[in-house]
Measured scan of single mutants.
Amino acid sequence: RNRTTFSTFQLEELEKVFQKTHYPDVYAREQLALRTDLTEARVQVWFQNRRAKWRK
């Protein structure tokens, strides 16, 4: 699988949710996936990576 390149819009949407919660539930991830045209799995992995970055 190739690396996912996120658009500016997608990143803004993802970051917006991350500001509210670092652990969105499955429903929130599904909604975000639909809004950003990503799969729920991509959204989940983005949050994992974003939390790792945030901890540093």
Rank of each mutant, 00 (worst) to 15 (best):
K16A: 10
T36Q: 00
R3S: 15
K56D: 12
N2T: 12
Q44E: 13
L32K: 04
E40M: 08
N2V: 05
E12N: 06
A41Y: 10
T21R: 02
R1M: 11
T8R: 09
T36R: 01
A41G: 10
L11Q: 08
K56H: 15
V26I: 11
V45A: 12
V45I: 09
H22V: 05
R3A: 06
E40K: 09
K16T: 09
K16F: 05
R3C: 15
R1P: 04
Q44Y: 10
Y23D: 05
Y27T: 07
W46L: 01
T36D: 00
L14I: 01
A41D: 10
E30Y: 09
Q19M: 06
Q19T: 15
E13P: 00
H22A: 04
V43E: 00
N49F: 14
L11M: 06
A52N: 09
F9H: 08
R29W: 01
F47P: 02
V26R: 12
L11W: 06
H22Y: 02
F18R: 02
N49C: 15
R1Q: 03
R35V: 14
R42N: 15
L34I: 11
Q19E: 15
E30F: 07
Q44K: 09
P24G: 02
R29F: 06
R55G: 13
P24E: 05
L11I: 04
N49R: 09
E12Y: 14
F6P: 09
T5F: 06
S7F: 06
R50M: 13
V17C: 14
E15R: 02
Q10L: 03
R3T: 15
R1E: 11
T8A: 12
A52C: 06
F18P: 00
F6K: 06
E12G: 08
K53P: 06
E13C: 04
E12M: 08
L11K: 06
R3K: 12
E30N: 14
D37G: 12
F18C: 00
R29P: 01
A28N: 13
K53S: 11
Y23K: 06
W46C: 03
Q48M: 08
E12D: 15
A33M: 07
K56T: 13
K20P: 00
Y23L: 01
T4D: 12
K53Y: 11
L11D: 07
V26F: 07
Y27S: 13
R50W: 00
R29L: 13
Q31G: 04
A52I: 08
V45Y: 14
Q48A: 08
W46D: 02
T39R: 03
Q31M: 10
